[in-house]
């Protein structure tokens, strides 16, 4: 077992979920604190900020959205992962404004969650270290620039605030411009550790991804829906 010092906070009112997530993360060597409601978590965060937070959306006393907003006000870089039991809840709740770094729908795969936590720690560590720019991990498709090491992307030179899932989807699409990726293929790339993701989940992530581009560029049309097949990336300027 590697020994890490990062502290992860897990906030969920479901005792079994909370404890299983804590168990899995501790096995990876993280320090873990668990909280059953938002107010209890916030009281603890005011004393000491965790290095990463896993939050349920519907929480007693202070809900996950408010907790996320308060955390964001204290730290702009602290990685936040949401767990949610309502797929449609995400559209309403997690727009561009909340600034969560990723979210997984219940019942999520524990292996996937652990993998996401690792990615987010890596992304956070590299964000503050601009020196290591590995050209091999850079991908360019027209006006899009993807940094596979940092899990970040830029559109026309401007950074996009993408969740890890959105980043993985975008990377899968942009790697082969013009080629159609089926939902099944996208699922495998965006959720490499989870065999049961619904196709609708992919659709709603793509919808949010598009919206993020459109907020930068109202005329954006780089992600094309191919009816009955899936999605493809279209080179900017080629349309």
């Amino acid at each position: 077992m590697q020994s890490r010092t990062e502290l992860v906070a897990v906030v969920d009112d479901e005792k079994n979920i909370r404890e299983t997530v804590a168990f899995a993360l501790k096995r990876e060597g993280y320090r873990v604190n668990t909280y059953a409601d938002g107010a209890e978590a916030w009281a603890a965060f005011r004393r000491e900020l965790p290095d990463l937070a896993v939050l349920d959306i519907l929480l007693p006393r202070m809900d996950g959205r408010e907790l996320c907003r308060k955390l964001r006000a204290k730290s702009e870089t602290l990685p936040i992962v949401f767990l949610t039991s309502k797929d449609e809840e995400l559209d309403r709740v997690l727009g561009l404004e909340l600034g969560a770094d990723d979210y997984l729908c219940k019942p999520f795969s524990m292996r996937e969650l652990v993998a996401r936590v690792k990615v987010l720690f890596r992304r956070a560590a590299l964000a503050s270290d601009p020196s290591r720019r590995e050209e091999a991990k850079m991908l360019r498709a027209g006006s899009l620039e993807i940094d596979g090491l940092r899990y970040t992307a830029r559109w026309r030179g401007e950074p996009l605030a993408l969740t890890v899932t959105e980043f993985l989807l975008l990377q899968a699409l942009a790697r082969h411009p013009g080629h159609v990726k089926t939902r099944q293929q996208l699922m495998e790339e965006a959720y490499p550790n989870d065999a049961y993701v619904s196709e609708r989940t992919i659709d709603s992530h793509v919808k949010r991804l598009r919206r993020k581009f459109e907020s930068r560029d109202a005329a954006f049309s780089g992600i094309d829906t191919v009816h009955g097949l899936g999605y493809r990336w279209i080179e900017a300027g080629a349309e």
């Binding site: 299983t20 039991s85 219940k106």
Partner: peptide, 24 residues
Amino acid sequence: ASEVAHELKNPLASIRSAAEMLHE
């Protein structure tokens, strides 16, 4: 229907993660 779907996902999430951990 949507309340039920939502409500069943919490126990399902616990079952799924516990089953995964049993493997490991």
